[in-house]
């Protein structure tokens, strides 16, 4: 991807410090979640996004408020980048009534209808059909909105992936398929699970515009996503981005991470998207140590407050257990 084609006033480079702040905000949130998990404040499955922040931040940067986002079980980063308030996300981790899913979803199932965040889906590839339908509804209603869908490399092995790319391409629907290729479907390496590991190539076989992107470089992701979104919004049909990234932590808190080479992890950590951007900003005189401390301080304050609110928030009354199984309506 070349950065020379984007409009100066629109270029993500203008927002580089903000992109850094957003990535740091996700990183610190995830680190705090890990601590809270160890302290048994958060339970269930917890899948951390550490290392992949550039993907969520870069892609959501290219979306407008009207666009939709469908996520996976590794959804904290997507939710935060999309603007779901941190206190509502943290309260959901705590299973509280003030959580963004009123304590019924937990870490894997964050939702926010106001921000068109259609949720963490814990079935691999299960969100793709939803995104196709969101886009179909928009087209049929004459709305020019984009539906973006995150999923991992593991999803590419699922039937739903192939059904959905075909259907979206067949009907030329405004879907942005965002494949977070972190090289592992839980513990199984991409090359152990898929006969063809070039995922962008496979997507292109359905007639979609697709290309690989350096998912460790938030600027590259933002620019690619912006270009992709422009095409999708303009009616050029769906687009597929293979965002090549890596998770620095284990699959979940239960994962002893026996299947990855420590050297491989270290090698990828050298490409930390946050460190990389921070160093670049410093080198260009766009970020001072004081400014960085200020950013960190602001995030810490927000996090402390989110945790404090989650700690004291009320739980859903047990009498409301079966609320929302069916829509509430006058009888």
């Amino acid at each position: 991807m070349s950065s020379t084609e984007t409009q100066p006033e629109d270029t993500p480079i203008d927002h580089r410090t903000d992109l850094l702040r957003q990535m740091l905000r996700i990183r610190r949130f995830e680190e705090r979640c890990a601590e809270l998990y160890s302290a048994s404040k958060i339970r269930g499955f917890l899948h951390l996004y550490v290392g992949e922040e550039a993907v969520a931040v870069g892609v959501t940067h290219a979306l407008s408020e009207d666009d939709a986002l469908v996520s996976t079980y590794r959804d904290h980063g997507h939710a935060l980048a999309r603007g779901v308030p941190m206190d509502a996300v943290m309260a959901e981790m705590y299973g509280k009534a003030t959580g963004c899913s009123r304590g019924r979803g937990g870490s894997m199932h964050l939702f926010d209808v106001r921000r068109r965040f259609y949720g963490g889906n814990a079935i691999v590839a299960g969100g793709l059909p939803l995104s196709v339908g969101l886009a179909l509804g928009d087209v049929m209603s004459g709305r020019r909105r984009v539906s973006a869908c995150f999923f991992g490399d593991g999803a590419v092995a699922e039937g739903e992936f192939h059904e959905c790319l075909n259907l979206a391409a067949l009907w030329q629907l405004p879907v942005l398929f965002c494949c977070e290729n972190n090289l592992y479907a839980m513990g199984t390496a991409l090359n152990q699970a898929q006969a063809v590991t070039d995922l962008a190539l496979r997507a292109s076989s359905y007639g979609l515009t697709s290309w690989p992107v350096d998912g460790m470089d938030v600027i590259a992701v933002a620019e690619a996503a912006q270009r992709a979104v422009e095409g999708v919004r303009a009616g050029a049909g769906p687009c597929f981005l293979e965002l090549r990234t890596y998770r620095f932590r284990a699959h979940s808190m239960y994962d002893p991470d026996r299947y990855r080479d420590k050297e491989e992890i270290e090698r990828w950590k050298q490409r930390d998207p946050i460190d990389g951007l921070a160093a670049d900003l410093r080198a260009h005189g766009e970020l001072t140590d004081d400014e960085l401390s200020g950013i960190e301080e602001g995030i810490k304050k927000e996090l402390d407050q989110a945790v404090a609110m989650a700690e004291t928030a009320p739980v859903e009354p047990v009498e409301d257990l079966t609320r929302f199984v069916y829509a509430e309506r006058p009888r």
Partner: peptide, 12 residues
């Protein structure tokens, strides 16, 4: 895909 697309379309 098309049942899921029905769900998505219903959501909007």
């Amino acid at each position: 895909a098309f049942v899921g697309a029905g769900i998505g379309a219903a959501l909007v």
